[in-house]
Amino acid sequence: MRGCVRLSRIISLLAALVLTGAATGGPVGAAAGTAPKRVVSINLCTDQLALLLAAPGQIVSLSHLSHDPDSSSMAEAAQAYPTNGSGAEEVYLLSPDLVLAGTFTASATVRMLRDLGIRVELFAPARSLEDIPERMAQMGAALGRAPEAEAQIARFHADLARLSAPPARRPRAALYYVNGYTTGDRTLAGDILRAAGFDNVATEAGLEQGGTLALEQLILLAPEVIVSGRDYPGQARAEEVLTHPALHALTGTRIAGTLTDRDWICGTPLVLSAVQKMRDLRLSLEVKK
């Protein structure tokens, strides 16, 4: 079981960071007045959107990962709700009238629930900051909370505009993860980097979506800042690339450490705190110059 949780954690993380989203799932059906009363979320990102927008008592259960402070930006708020293992059987027994899932959630589970007559609303992972208001509007409509969503979307736009004011100079940065993986501009992480006023060197290497960037390519690109992924518990040889001595031999490059944490995973307004942190990093670079 623990293995499953870990796997789903990686999948949700990858889905959010990397994948090019498929089209958003089924139509948003809930008209005002027919707001669902028993909502079950089986995806880390829909967990958080639901927590932000749902009315008190509307949520019945959240996914396991929602309680994990390493993955969920709203782990504290999620503690108030029980969790589910995201399997069709378990979810059905909760007798929900709306299930929230990601488009990359196990399709067998989603099909089974739909066959059982349960409404399932699918949310595509956000690929950019622009996707976030759309997901919020979708969640607001699904929960029958459109006015709340409107208000939060307006706040999101205002905060983002304040944080992403164009900088005088755009430092070159790289996002570098386990196994030499990097993310390009056309991903949520890349867009966070862009909004915070950095240029992504992955684009120079032709990796707009992201992909494997060999360590020697990264070093020849010589970015001003290297931001690495979070450190997982335990040891893996795959993580050794993040501590390779060559990274520290680069003069003029700052290894900013593990900044890409839970706030980078899901397309929720909480990514603004990631933009804020990266912006602070950029401003600290300017001071040093």
Partner: peptide
């Protein structure tokens, strides 16, 4: 291992690599 990438390391230990 609690590390999600440790399982992928199995290939490395079985087949060997000099990368990085």
């Amino acid at each position: 291992s609690p590390n999600p990438f440790a399982a992928a390391d199995i290939v490395f230990w079985m087949m060997g690599s000099l990368a990085d």
